[in-house]
Protein backbone atom coordinates (compact mmCIF):
# COMPACT_ATOMS: atom_id res chain seq x y z
CA UNK A 1 0.00 0.00 0.00
CA UNK A 2 1.32 3.43 -0.94
CA UNK A 3 0.49 6.48 1.15
CA UNK A 4 0.96 10.17 0.54
CA UNK A 5 2.83 11.94 3.29
CA UNK A 6 3.58 15.64 3.55
CA UNK A 7 6.33 16.69 5.88
CA UNK A 8 8.58 19.66 6.43
CA UNK A 9 12.11 18.42 7.09
CA UNK A 10 14.64 20.97 8.30
CA UNK A 11 12.46 23.73 6.86
CA UNK A 12 11.96 22.16 3.46
CA UNK A 13 8.61 20.70 2.33
CA UNK A 14 8.46 17.19 0.95
CA UNK A 15 5.49 15.43 -0.62
CA UNK A 16 6.36 11.74 -0.44
CA UNK A 17 4.70 8.54 -1.47
CA UNK A 18 5.72 5.88 1.01
CA UNK A 19 4.97 2.26 1.74
CA UNK A 20 3.03 1.50 4.90
CA UNK A 21 6.05 -0.37 6.24
CA UNK A 22 8.55 2.43 5.67
CA UNK A 23 10.12 3.88 8.78
CA UNK A 24 11.01 7.48 9.38
CA UNK A 25 14.71 6.57 9.65
CA UNK A 26 14.68 4.75 6.31
CA UNK A 27 13.01 7.67 4.56
CA UNK A 28 15.37 10.22 6.12
CA UNK A 29 18.48 8.21 5.37
CA UNK A 30 17.68 6.58 2.06
CA UNK A 31 15.35 9.02 0.33
CA UNK A 32 16.35 12.40 1.76
CA UNK A 33 20.05 11.64 2.25
CA UNK A 34 19.97 12.70 5.90
CA UNK A 35 22.41 10.09 7.16
CA UNK A 36 23.09 11.98 10.37
CA UNK A 37 20.17 9.95 11.70
CA UNK A 38 21.95 6.79 12.86
CA UNK A 39 20.23 3.47 13.37
CA UNK A 40 21.86 1.28 15.99
CA UNK A 41 19.53 -1.01 17.95
CA UNK A 42 16.59 -0.58 15.54
CA UNK A 43 14.29 -1.29 18.51
CA UNK A 44 13.78 2.11 20.09
CA UNK A 45 16.13 1.18 22.92
CA UNK A 46 19.33 3.15 22.35
CA UNK A 47 18.17 6.54 21.06
CA UNK A 48 20.86 6.86 18.40
CA UNK A 49 18.18 7.59 15.78
CA UNK A 50 16.49 10.31 17.87
CA UNK A 51 15.10 13.13 15.74
CA UNK A 52 12.55 15.84 16.52
CA UNK A 53 8.96 15.62 15.32
CA UNK A 54 7.22 18.91 16.05
CA UNK A 55 9.88 19.47 18.67
CA UNK A 56 9.42 16.13 20.42
CA UNK A 57 12.26 13.59 20.49
CA UNK A 58 11.23 10.46 18.63
CA UNK A 59 12.98 7.20 17.73
CA UNK A 60 13.01 7.37 13.96
CA UNK A 61 13.82 3.65 13.65
CA UNK A 62 10.52 2.66 15.22
CA UNK A 63 8.22 5.32 13.78
CA UNK A 64 6.29 4.61 10.60
CA UNK A 65 6.59 7.37 8.08
CA UNK A 66 2.83 7.65 7.61
CA UNK A 67 2.50 8.46 11.32
CA UNK A 68 4.37 11.74 10.90
CA UNK A 69 2.20 13.06 8.06
CA UNK A 70 1.77 16.80 8.32
CA UNK A 71 4.55 17.35 10.85
CA UNK A 72 7.74 19.34 11.11
CA UNK A 73 10.86 17.22 11.42
CA UNK A 74 14.27 18.34 12.56
CA UNK A 75 17.37 16.24 12.06
CA UNK A 76 20.91 17.05 13.14
CA UNK A 77 21.57 18.43 9.66
CA UNK A 78 18.88 21.07 10.30
CA UNK A 79 20.42 22.50 13.46
CA UNK A 80 23.37 24.57 12.28
CA UNK A 81 21.50 26.97 10.05
CA UNK A 82 23.91 28.80 7.77
CA UNK A 83 26.83 26.92 9.29
CA UNK A 84 26.44 28.50 12.72
CA UNK A 85 26.37 25.80 15.36
CA UNK A 86 23.63 25.84 17.96
CA UNK A 87 24.48 26.33 21.59
CA UNK A 88 24.05 22.62 22.22
CA UNK A 89 26.35 21.62 19.35
CA UNK A 90 28.89 24.16 20.50
CA UNK A 91 28.74 22.82 24.05
CA UNK A 92 29.26 19.24 22.84
CA UNK A 93 32.36 20.42 20.98
CA UNK A 94 33.73 22.42 23.88
CA UNK A 95 33.31 19.56 26.34
CA UNK A 96 34.44 16.83 23.94
CA UNK A 97 31.14 15.02 24.48
CA UNK A 98 31.95 12.55 21.71
CA UNK A 99 34.06 9.60 21.00
CA UNK A 100 32.87 7.47 18.12
CA UNK A 101 30.04 9.90 17.45
CA UNK A 102 27.42 7.32 16.53
CA UNK A 103 25.13 8.41 19.38
CA UNK A 104 25.93 12.09 18.98
CA UNK A 105 23.24 13.35 16.63
CA UNK A 106 20.58 11.66 18.73
CA UNK A 107 22.07 13.05 21.95
CA UNK A 108 22.29 16.57 20.55
CA UNK A 109 18.68 16.51 19.36
CA UNK A 110 17.52 15.08 22.69
CA UNK A 111 19.29 17.82 24.60
CA UNK A 112 17.95 20.41 22.17
CA UNK A 113 14.41 19.24 22.93
CA UNK A 114 15.05 19.22 26.67
CA UNK A 115 16.46 22.73 26.78
CA UNK A 116 13.65 24.02 24.59
CA UNK A 117 11.24 22.87 27.27
CA UNK A 118 13.33 23.71 30.29
CA UNK A 119 16.30 26.00 29.72
CA UNK A 120 17.51 25.36 33.24
CA UNK A 121 16.87 21.69 34.04
CA UNK A 122 17.91 20.31 37.41
CA UNK A 123 20.24 17.32 37.57
CA UNK A 124 17.41 14.85 38.11
CA UNK A 125 15.62 16.09 35.00
CA UNK A 126 18.79 15.89 32.93
CA UNK A 127 19.45 12.35 34.17
CA UNK A 128 15.91 11.32 33.40
CA UNK A 129 15.98 12.72 29.89
CA UNK A 130 19.45 11.54 28.96
CA UNK A 131 18.73 8.03 30.20
CA UNK A 132 16.68 7.44 27.09
CA UNK A 133 19.85 7.43 24.98
CA UNK A 134 22.88 5.17 25.20
CA UNK A 135 26.48 6.25 24.73
CA UNK A 136 28.81 3.25 24.92
CA UNK A 137 32.00 5.32 24.66
CA UNK A 138 32.16 8.23 27.07
CA UNK A 139 30.74 7.13 30.41
CA UNK A 140 28.49 10.22 30.11
CA UNK A 141 30.50 12.74 32.16
CA UNK A 142 31.44 14.83 29.14
CA UNK A 143 27.86 14.74 27.84
CA UNK A 144 26.53 15.92 31.21
CA UNK A 145 29.09 18.71 31.17
CA UNK A 146 27.93 19.76 27.72
CA UNK A 147 24.32 19.88 28.90
CA UNK A 148 25.32 22.05 31.85
CA UNK A 149 27.34 24.32 29.57
CA UNK A 150 24.51 24.67 27.06
CA UNK A 151 21.93 25.40 29.73
CA UNK A 152 24.22 27.91 31.43
CA UNK A 153 24.66 29.58 28.06
CA UNK A 154 20.91 29.78 27.61
CA UNK A 155 20.53 31.33 31.06
CA UNK A 156 23.18 33.92 30.26
CA UNK A 157 21.43 34.68 27.01
CA UNK A 158 18.07 35.05 28.73
CA UNK A 159 19.54 37.37 31.36
CA UNK A 160 21.23 39.58 28.78
Amino acid sequence: MRLNVNVVVNGRSHALEVGAHETLSDVLRERLGLTGCKVACDQSVCGACTILVDGDPVSACSTFMFKVDDSKITTVEGLAAGGVLTRVQEAFLQDGAFQCGFCTSGMILLVTALLARDPNPDDATVQQWLSSNICRCTGYNSILAAVRRASAGLRTEAAA
Binding site: T35, Q89, F92, L93, S105
Partner: peptide, 11 residues
Amino acid sequence: FRKKATGQSVY
Protein backbone atom coordinates in the same frame (compact mmCIF):
# COMPACT_ATOMS: atom_id res chain seq x y z
CA PHE B 1 34.04 16.54 16.01
CA ARG B 2 32.35 19.36 14.17
CA LYS B 3 31.40 16.81 11.54
CA LYS B 4 30.08 14.51 14.23
CA ALA B 5 28.05 17.34 15.75
CA THR B 6 26.45 18.23 12.42
CA GLY B 7 25.76 14.75 11.05
CA GLN B 8 28.37 15.01 8.31
CA SER B 9 30.69 12.23 9.42
CA VAL B 10 30.70 9.25 7.11
CA TYR B 11 30.71 5.83 8.70
